[in-house]
Amino acid sequence: MTYHTLLLILVAAAAVAAVMARNLLLSAIMLALVSVGASLVLFDFQAPWAAVFELSVCAGLITVLFVSAVSLIRHEESKVAENRARFYAMPLVMGIVAIAAWFYAVPYFESLEDWARLGGRANTLGTVIWDIRRFDLLGQVSILAAGVFVVNSMFPRRKKQK
């Protein structure tokens, strides 16, 4: 049981907790925990750039967005008549899927590994694309800013009533 596997177990457990949580705020916080776990996995894969993006944007910005949305629709939570039995059945369904995937999906993934040698040839292409991509990094940052400005429509300025 390595550190890597433990991190993946943490992510899976946080995902199940996020789905099963009755409180929407708790669900949003569990989603942040999923993001933190995913970014730790990325650090473990020696991918620090993607991990930093994941940690700052997904665990930070998206959590803020979810929490603000939850606070705006707060008193609505109890009114939505959801069938909780489906959520309580989730560990059972997850267990069935886990056992089935262990016996059916894992041999498929192991057979996929033979194809990794073919994909490994494009190593220079990766560095070229990564060098070229530095130009449109600014464009991506501006798209991110546009996404933040969309939040502006969530909090519209009220017009004065005459």
Partner: peptide, 12 residues
């Protein structure tokens, strides 16, 4: 596959 740079660009 050893294409970690490309994967990071896609992820970002």
């Amino acid at each position: 596959t050893g294409n970690l740079a490309l994967a990071q660009a896609l992820i970002i």
